[in-house]
Write a protein that binds this DNA or RNA. Structure first.
Length: 196
DNA sequence: CTCACGATTAGA
DNA sequence: CTAATCGTGAGA
């Protein structure tokens, strides 16, 4: 399991470092392991795309102000959960959105949770999809990802891979922050949220 | 209390 | 391309 120190850095740095690591989810039904292949950084008060822009502290964004290593799960469009990892020190609202993962173990459980007919590559290639696949919902908001047996991060194999960057998705409202290259993904991976 | 809308997805 | 669908945050 990754220690809390891993998360106590800037969101951009953690977002890049998270690629290739493993997300572990344990439920009553069993264990699911997935490799993180795509992330986005949301950098604190100055980032207009961040829910906690301008240090806006509300009931929803409260978790982002926690110290690095906590989870931030929220509901978007009234129907989808998104899973984020809080980064930086306490009081700094920074987080990394996990946008896509690649199934490593527990594929049968993932299929059971998703309940769709489409192909295997569509199981976890989007923030809402992977949350559903791993049974992540708002009951997991604000938990410690470094001291917990239901949901945590684990160091992945140290394979070499190329990290690409790009603009973040669907944040057109963020004005000059819309085009910041704060999305990171593993090159030539087929489980990304969009095809390149 | 009302009310508009989104860090999305599935399906036509 | 659009509908689905509801917690959230702002304002009265």
């Amino acid at each position: 399991m990754l220690k809390q120190e891993f998360y106590l850095r800037g969101a951009i740095e953690v977002a890049k470092d998270l690629l290739g690591h493993l997300l572990v989810r344990k439920t009553k039904q069993g264990k699911i392991v997935a490799r993180i292949v795509e992330t986005e950084a949301y950098v604190g008060p100055e980032d207009k795309a961040c829910h906690a822009y301008d240090n806006k502290k509300t009931k929803r964004t409260k978790a982002m102000f926690k110290a690095g290593g906590y989870s931030y799960v929220y509901l978007i469009y009234g129907m989808h959960n998104c899973f984020n990892v809080v980064t930086a020190s306490k009081g700094k609202p920074e987080a990394v959105l996990i946008r896509a993962v690649e199934p490593v173990a527990g594929l049968d459980l993932i299929k059971q949770n998703r309940d769709i007919k489409s192909g295997e590559k569509n199981l976890t290639n989007g923030p809402g999809k992977l949350s559903q696949a791993l049974k992540i919902d708002r009951s997991l908001n604000g938990i410690k990802l470094f001291e917990n047996d239901k949901l945590y991060l684990k160091a992945g194999p140290k394979n070499k891979f190329t990290i690409n960057t790009g603009a973040r998705i669907n944040i057109d409202y963020a004005e000059e922050y819309t085009d910041k290259p704060w999305r990171f993904y593993i090159a030539e991976n087929s489980f990304l949220s969009k095809s390149y």
